[in-house]
Every structure is written in structure tokens, then in C-alpha cells.
Simulated scan of single mutants.
Amino acid sequence: MKNRDAFLCYGILLAAGQGKRFDPSGRQYKLLQTLPTGQTVIARSASQLKEAFPNSIAVVSENAVQIQQSLTELALPFCICETAQDGMANSLVTALRQIPADIDAVVIALADMPFVRGETLLQIRSSLIGGAEIVVPTYQGQRGNPVGFAIKYLPQLLSLQGDRGARQLLQTYPVTEIAVSDQGILRDIDVPADLIDTKVAGT
């Protein structure tokens, strides 16, 4: 087990999705919508991740100027994926190529899941520090996000393709599940009604 203070874990925020189900017309981008907390979806997700993992990076699409501005205001570094439309794996690989090679682990979070609690992120980190190599939170037996990976899995992560992202690895390698009392690990912003789920938002 590595010393807690010496353990370096990077957070990766996937924020390059198109969000077409939220508004097929493309006029309303879901990550810029306001939650009951008063924050936008992207601001909530980014600030939670950065607080748990000061070394974090987001990945965005090249035309998402307002998202880039929001991340700049939050002082969260970001990189641009020019092929985000070809699948989530492209965004993940783009971000992974920006992080240092000598870190211990990465935690992959989704920008459209702003209701994940900060303590859940810290539980994932603690499990990785304790020696777990792939960590998935569960709520009432159901797996959710974010997911943590020891850096030994970097080659496998870099080889991912398509829109399934890192889920492929969860079906191939041993997974440590941690039970949490956080329904937010299962809830994303998919349609406008998801924005007003105040029970999940904790308001």
C-alpha cells in the first residue's frame, strides 16, 4: 500500500458528448443548464471532481466554446478532442494522453452526472490507495460512475474504441465494488426533467 500523501490520482472529466437526447435541435446544451443548486451542470461536475482530485483534466469538443469558458473560470485544465463525435473512447484516450506517466491512478467521471457526492469520489480514491486496481461504486447493488483505474491499466485504456468507453475493461478484469449511499452515481442528465430531481441533488 502506497503512502496516502504520496499517492497521485488524476481525475478525468468527460465533457465532449453531444447531448442530442436533451435537445435534438442543438439549441440547448445540457452541460450549460442550471441545477437546483444554482450551478450549471458542468460547473457542479467539474468543481466536485477538482475538489476531490486537485490534479484533474477535462476533455471537451472543439466547438464547445462556452464549456471551455466555464472550465477556464473554474481553473480546471482541459484538452480538446477533435473526434469526439466518433465515440466516448476517443475523448477518454485524448485526455489520457495528456496526463503524466508516473501517476498511480485515474478516476474517470462523466460531466453529465453532477449529483455524484464528493465523499463518493474520496471513497474511490481510498480504495485505490488501499490496493484496489479497478474500483466501481454501487448503489443498492447497481454499478455506477465514476470508475477508478490503477495506472497499470493505462495501455488497455489507451486501446479503447467506440462509444462504450472503459466499460469494456469492467467485463474483462477483476473489479472492486464499493457500496455507497449515493444515488447520484446512477443519475445522469439525459432529458430536461433530470435537472429538477431535487432529491438526488440534495436540496
Rank of each mutant, 00 (worst) to 15 (best):
Phe7His: 08
Asp5Gln: 11
Ala64Ile: 01
Arg44Gln: 15
Gly148His: 11
Asp188Cys: 05
Ser70His: 12
Gln161Met: 09
Glu133Gly: 03
Met88Cys: 10
Tyr173Pro: 02
Ile185Asn: 02
Ile196His: 05
Arg187Cys: 00
Ile42Lys: 02
Val116Met: 02
Leu96His: 09
Pro100His: 13
Leu122Val: 14
Gly118His: 09
Asp104Met: 12
Thr72Tyr: 06
Leu186Pro: 13
Ala46His: 02
Asn55Leu: 13
Gln68Asp: 05
Ser126Trp: 07
Gln66His: 11
Thr34Gly: 01
Asp104Ser: 11
Ala89Val: 05
Thr138Val: 09
Leu122Phe: 07
Glu62Asp: 14
Gln142Glu: 13
Ile42Glu: 02
Phe78Asn: 10
Ser181Ile: 03
Val116Asp: 00
Leu92Ile: 12
Ala111His: 07
Asp104Tyr: 10
Lys30Asp: 01
Pro36Glu: 10
Gly19Tyr: 10
Phe149Thr: 04
Leu76Lys: 04
Val41Phe: 00
Gly87Ile: 10
Gly202Pro: 04
Ala58Ser: 11
Arg4Val: 07
Gly118Arg: 10
Val200Thr: 09
Gln33Glu: 04
Leu158Thr: 14
Gln68Leu: 05
Thr34Glu: 06
Ala111Tyr: 03
Gln85Val: 08
Ile124Cys: 09
Pro36Thr: 08
Gly11Pro: 01
Ser56Leu: 08
Leu92Asn: 11
Tyr153Ile: 05
Glu119Ser: 15
Phe115His: 02
Leu49Ile: 10
Ala43Leu: 02
Ala46Trp: 02
Leu31Glu: 14
Pro174Ile: 10
Leu186Gly: 11
Gly162Leu: 11
Val65His: 11
Phe22Lys: 04
Leu49Arg: 02
Leu121Met: 14
Leu170Ser: 04
Glu119Leu: 12
Gly17Phe: 03
Met88Phe: 10
Arg143Leu: 08
Ala15Asn: 08
Phe115Leu: 01
Leu128Gln: 08
Leu71Thr: 09
Gly19Leu: 10
Leu35His: 00
Leu92Met: 12
Leu186Lys: 08
Gly26Ile: 10
Gly130Leu: 07
Tyr153Met: 08
Thr72Ser: 15
Ala16Tyr: 02
Ser181Asn: 15
Asp102Ser: 12
Ile12Leu: 15
Leu92Lys: 08
Gly184Arg: 00
